[in-house]
């Protein structure tokens, strides 16, 4: 479980938000939405332990990411995956190279299994046989999918994705929702940062989501009982 206690962030123009309390339980998937400049990416970075909040703390499994030693933070980052809004593709790098890098960041993947899992995951994100494709030749949506596949390849317990749905078509968005639900059923925690989510994701009730500071939180999978 990821818990944020009274977290606050400050940017050049002033306070982004302050006193934010959030909780994302195991086996839950949440979409955090907010307008441009509201600090969604900053929130994801804080929740992932990449950026120290200007106030408050983040606790995962009872261990603080920022107030203890660096080990807890490192272990959490090793067990979590991040799909950034954009990543700079190295010149001449292929999809296979990205998976090789992901394998290098992982403890548990024997070399013999890498190719097989790589094929499976690329097929899962709708890009079968893309191993040899040059990363720089991919569209933004394809890059996001490849990045997601490479992160899932590491078998993370937590997944953070920034603007994954922004350029996704309806079909891909539906596929993603099914994927997140399946991951949540496996006990993984998923946090998405998006400007908005498809109407169909907002639930049958009023579809307004939970308001937390400048953000609206929508449960994507797992019942959404954990958000405070």
């Amino acid at each position: 479980m990821i818990e944020a206690f009274r977290v606050g962030a400050v940017c050049r123009n002033g306070t982004l938000w302050d006193g934010l309390d959030l909780a994302f339980g195991d086996g839950e998937a949440w979409a955090v939405t907010g307008p441009p400049g509201s600090g969604k990416t900053v929130l994801l970075r804080i929740l992932r332990g990449e950026q120290r909040p200007d106030a408050g703390d983040v606790v995962v499994g009872g261990r603080s990411l920022f107030r203890g030693g660096p080990a807890a933070n490192r272990e959490f980052r090793a067990s979590s995956a991040v799909v950034p809004e954009s990543f700079p593709p190295g010149a001449g790098r292929t999809v296979d190279d990205l998976f090789r890098l992901a394998a290098a960041a992982s403890f548990h993947i024997p070399a013999s299994e890498r190719k097989e899992r790589e094929e499976e995951l690329l097929a899962l994100v709708g890009l079968p046989g893309a191993q040899r494709w040059d990363l720089s030749s991919l569209s933004i949506s394809e890059r996001a999918r490849v990045s997601l596949a490479a992160e899932l390849f590491r078998g993370p317990g937590y997944l953070f994705a920034d603007m994954l749905l922004l350029n996704a078509g309806r079909e891909w968005a539906d596929m993603l929702r099914a994927l997140f639900r399946a991951l949540a059923r496996e006990g993984k925690t998923i946090v998405l940062a998006e400007r908005s989510i498809p109407e169909g994701w907002k639930g049958p009730e009023d579809g307004r989501g939970l308001a937390r500071g400048p953000f609206l939180l929508y449960p994507v999978a797992g019942g959404g009982v954990g958000a405070r």
């Binding site: 990449e50 660096p70 490192r74 272990e75 959490f76 980052r77 090793a78 067990s79 979590s80 995956a81 991040v82 990543f87 700079p88 190295g90 890098l101 290098a104 960041a105 590491r154």
Partner: peptide
């Protein structure tokens, strides 16, 4: 320098 982004990738994923 050419692999800096890759090392940052590893660092972001918990490799000291």
């Amino acid at each position: 320098a050419s692999l800096a982004a890759d090392f940052a990738f590893l660092g972001d994923r918990g490799t000291p």
